[in-house]
Simulated scan of single mutants.
Amino acid sequence: MNTLRPGFGVPDIMALRAEALSRQTALREVRSASVAQPRDASAAPAAGFAATLDNAMQQVSAVQNRSSELQVAYERGEVTDIAQVMIARQEAGIAFEAALQTRNKLLSAYQDIMRMGG
Protein backbone atom coordinates (compact mmCIF):
# COMPACT_ATOMS: atom_id res chain seq x y z
CA MET A 1 0.00 0.00 0.00
CA ASN A 2 1.68 3.18 -1.18
CA THR A 3 0.28 6.24 0.57
CA LEU A 4 2.84 8.67 -0.90
CA ARG A 5 1.45 11.19 -3.34
CA PRO A 6 2.65 14.41 -4.97
CA GLY A 7 2.89 17.17 -2.38
CA PHE A 8 3.51 14.70 0.45
CA GLY A 9 5.11 16.86 3.13
CA VAL A 10 6.65 16.74 6.56
CA PRO A 11 3.30 16.89 8.41
CA ASP A 12 2.13 13.86 6.44
CA ILE A 13 5.31 11.98 7.27
CA MET A 14 4.96 12.88 10.95
CA ALA A 15 1.35 11.69 10.91
CA LEU A 16 2.43 8.37 9.38
CA ARG A 17 5.20 8.09 11.98
CA ALA A 18 2.76 8.74 14.81
CA GLU A 19 0.33 6.16 13.42
CA ALA A 20 3.07 3.55 13.08
CA LEU A 21 4.34 4.19 16.59
CA SER A 22 0.87 4.03 18.08
CA ARG A 23 0.12 0.76 16.31
CA GLN A 24 3.43 -0.65 17.48
CA THR A 25 2.68 0.38 21.06
CA ALA A 26 -0.82 -1.07 20.90
CA LEU A 27 0.54 -4.36 19.58
CA ARG A 28 3.23 -4.39 22.28
CA GLU A 29 0.57 -3.85 24.97
CA VAL A 30 -1.57 -6.66 23.59
CA ARG A 31 1.45 -8.95 23.41
CA SER A 32 2.55 -8.14 26.96
CA ALA A 33 -0.99 -8.59 28.27
CA SER A 34 -1.28 -12.02 26.66
CA VAL A 35 2.12 -13.08 28.01
CA ALA A 36 1.37 -11.68 31.47
CA GLN A 37 -1.90 -13.62 31.68
CA PRO A 38 -0.87 -17.25 32.27
CA ARG A 39 -3.36 -19.82 31.06
CA ASP A 40 -4.72 -21.67 34.09
CA ALA A 41 -7.18 -24.42 33.20
CA SER A 42 -8.44 -24.69 36.77
CA ALA A 43 -9.48 -21.01 36.96
CA ALA A 44 -13.15 -20.20 36.52
CA PRO A 45 -13.73 -18.80 33.02
CA ALA A 46 -16.15 -16.09 34.20
CA ALA A 47 -13.75 -14.76 36.83
CA GLY A 48 -10.86 -14.85 34.35
CA PHE A 49 -12.90 -13.02 31.72
CA ALA A 50 -14.08 -10.37 34.17
CA ALA A 51 -10.55 -9.85 35.50
CA THR A 52 -9.15 -9.60 31.97
CA LEU A 53 -11.81 -7.10 30.95
CA ASP A 54 -11.25 -5.05 34.11
CA ASN A 55 -7.49 -5.07 33.50
CA ALA A 56 -8.01 -3.92 29.90
CA MET A 57 -10.25 -1.05 31.02
CA GLN A 58 -7.66 0.00 33.60
CA GLN A 59 -4.99 0.03 30.89
CA VAL A 60 -7.19 2.21 28.66
CA SER A 61 -7.75 4.58 31.57
CA ALA A 62 -4.02 4.71 32.31
CA VAL A 63 -3.18 5.53 28.67
CA GLN A 64 -5.80 8.30 28.64
CA ASN A 65 -4.53 9.71 31.94
CA ARG A 66 -0.94 9.74 30.61
CA SER A 67 -2.12 11.55 27.48
CA SER A 68 -3.93 14.16 29.56
CA GLU A 69 -0.91 14.65 31.82
CA LEU A 70 1.40 15.13 28.84
CA GLN A 71 -0.99 17.59 27.25
CA VAL A 72 -1.23 19.65 30.44
CA ALA A 73 2.56 19.52 30.85
CA TYR A 74 2.97 20.76 27.26
CA GLU A 75 0.55 23.61 27.89
CA ARG A 76 2.57 24.61 30.96
CA GLY A 77 5.81 24.46 28.99
CA GLU A 78 7.21 21.52 30.97
CA VAL A 79 7.28 19.24 27.91
CA THR A 80 8.64 20.67 24.66
CA ASP A 81 8.36 17.63 22.41
CA ILE A 82 5.03 18.03 20.60
CA ALA A 83 5.56 14.69 18.86
CA GLN A 84 5.56 12.93 22.24
CA VAL A 85 2.28 14.64 23.17
CA MET A 86 0.66 13.80 19.84
CA ILE A 87 1.78 10.17 20.04
CA ALA A 88 0.27 9.91 23.52
CA ARG A 89 -3.00 11.36 22.20
CA GLN A 90 -3.01 8.86 19.33
CA GLU A 91 -2.35 6.01 21.76
CA ALA A 92 -5.27 7.14 23.90
CA GLY A 93 -7.52 7.37 20.86
CA ILE A 94 -6.57 3.90 19.67
CA ALA A 95 -7.01 2.42 23.14
CA PHE A 96 -10.46 4.00 23.44
CA GLU A 97 -11.46 2.82 19.96
CA ALA A 98 -10.32 -0.73 20.77
CA ALA A 99 -12.34 -0.67 24.00
CA LEU A 100 -15.37 0.62 22.15
CA GLN A 101 -15.08 -2.08 19.47
CA THR A 102 -14.69 -4.74 22.16
CA ARG A 103 -17.81 -3.46 23.89
CA ASN A 104 -19.73 -3.54 20.62
CA LYS A 105 -18.65 -7.12 19.92
CA LEU A 106 -19.56 -8.23 23.45
CA LEU A 107 -22.96 -6.56 23.20
CA SER A 108 -23.61 -8.20 19.84
CA ALA A 109 -22.61 -11.62 21.20
CA TYR A 110 -24.87 -11.12 24.24
CA GLN A 111 -27.80 -10.20 21.99
CA ASP A 112 -27.17 -13.26 19.82
CA ILE A 113 -27.14 -15.50 22.89
CA MET A 114 -30.37 -13.95 24.18
CA ARG A 115 -32.07 -14.61 20.82
CA MET A 116 -31.03 -18.30 20.99
CA GLY A 117 -32.79 -18.87 24.29
CA GLY A 118 -36.29 -18.33 22.87
Rank of each mutant, 00 (worst) to 15 (best):
F8P: 10
G9I: 09
V10R: 15
P11F: 15
I13Y: 07
M14Q: 13
M14G: 01
A15Q: 14
A15T: 12
A15R: 15
L16W: 09
R17K: 14
R17I: 08
R17T: 15
A18Q: 13
L21H: 02
S22D: 12
R23L: 14
T25R: 11
A26S: 15
R28P: 00
R31V: 09
R31D: 05
R31Q: 09
S34R: 11
V35I: 15
A36W: 06
Q37P: 00
Q37D: 14
P38C: 00
P38L: 00
P38N: 00
R39W: 02
D40Y: 02
P45L: 12
P45G: 06
A46Q: 10
A46Y: 01
G48Q: 10
G48A: 13
F49Q: 03
D54Y: 05
N55W: 01
N55G: 06
A56P: 03
Q58D: 13
Q58V: 10
Q59H: 10
Q59W: 05
V60I: 14
V60W: 01
V60T: 11
S61Q: 13
Q64K: 10
S67L: 02
S67Y: 04
S68G: 04
L70G: 03
V72S: 01
V72H: 01
V72G: 00
A73V: 06
A73D: 15
Y74I: 04
E75H: 10
R76E: 15
D81C: 08
I82D: 08
I82M: 09
A83S: 13
Q84F: 08
V85L: 05
M86G: 01
Q90H: 04
Q90W: 00
E91A: 01
E91L: 01
E91D: 15
A92W: 00
A92T: 05
A92E: 03
A95R: 02
A95Q: 03
F96D: 03
F96N: 04
E97P: 00
A99R: 02
A99L: 07
A99V: 02
L100T: 08
Q101W: 04
Q101D: 09
N104V: 05
